[in-house]
């Protein structure tokens, strides 16, 4: 899967004075911080503070209006759409709150999707996907469709999908937002354990302190401005 071992000191992903405006109000108004390989970083803040926008910028889904996103020394914001898409397919994994599993594909096929998008053969991709489902304790769901599984199970399938490609960074946007405490904790434990095992960094957007407690450190976003609590402390 992934060959990189955690190197906590190397900067992996950094934001430099990010600005992004949707409509009349700025969603991001100067965000700066650094994320190192293998660490789990929580991005916290009240609703509407710009957390999700920050995540979208970091993942190269949207381009910031000003400022830079550096991934392994390369400026993400300067890459073409195709190059950013390729990066998202290869190096990143995603977990969202809702609507992320393709409803007509089975769970195995959903998990295999990132690998297949990256050109893997179907058999091989589905074999790996089955392994990951096993690891996330949902092996029996393989041939069910997302509509037939519970929210917590679906979210674990989504975590498997985020991890299956051996990403260096996993972006998780309120991954437990739709779950009860027990299921939420289970998903968080599986997500962070798996990420630590594979050495992937996790950018975890959440407004819940108990979810953020699974992180190594936190970044607080307030009114579009970020505050790296490591520097404060």
């Amino acid at each position: 899967m992934t060959s990189s071992t955690p190197q906590p000191s190397t900067p992996l992903l950094s934001a430099d004075a990010l600005h992004k405006t949707y409509g009349p109000t700025p969603a991001l108004d100067g965000a700066d911080f650094t994320i190192r390989s293998g660490e789990v970083v929580a991005v916290m803040g009240p609703s509407g503070s710009g957390k999700s926008t920050l995540l979208h910028c970091l993942a190269g889904i949207v381009r910031p209006d000003a400022g830079k996103v550096l991934y392994r020394g390369e400026e993400l914001s300067a890459m073409s759409d195709a190059a950013r898409s390729a990066l998202r397919r290869g190096d990143f994994g995603f977990v969202f709150q809702f609507g992320q599993l393709v409803p007509e594909l089975t769970c195995v096929e959903n998990v295999a999707l990132p690998l297949r998008l990256n050109g893997a053969k179907r058999k091989e991709a589905e074999r790996l996907a089955t392994e990951w489902l096993h690891r996330l304790e949902v092996d029996d769901l393989g041939h069910k469709r997302p509509g037939e599984v519970s929210g917590g199970q679906g979210q674990r399938v989504a975590v498997a999908r985020a991890l299956v490609g051996g990403p260096r960074v996993i972006f998780a946007d309120e991954p437990t937002g739709a779950l009860d405490s027990l299921n939420g904790e289970r998903v968080m434990r599986l997500l962070t354990d798996a990420a630590r095992d594979t050495g992937a960094a996790v950018v975890l957007v959440t407004h819940e302190a108990r979810v953020a407690a699974y992180s190594d450190r936190e970044i607080v976003v307030r009114d579009g401005k970020s505050r790296d609590m490591e520097r404060v402390a």
Binding site: A209, R210, A212, A213, Y214, S215, D216, E218, V220, R227, M229, V232, A233
Partner: peptide, 12 residues
């Protein structure tokens, strides 16, 4: 913020 960092440290 310092207090919150401290709280979070304990929570971790």
């Amino acid at each position: 913020d310092t207090q919150r960092a401290e709280h979070l440290r304990l929570m971790r």
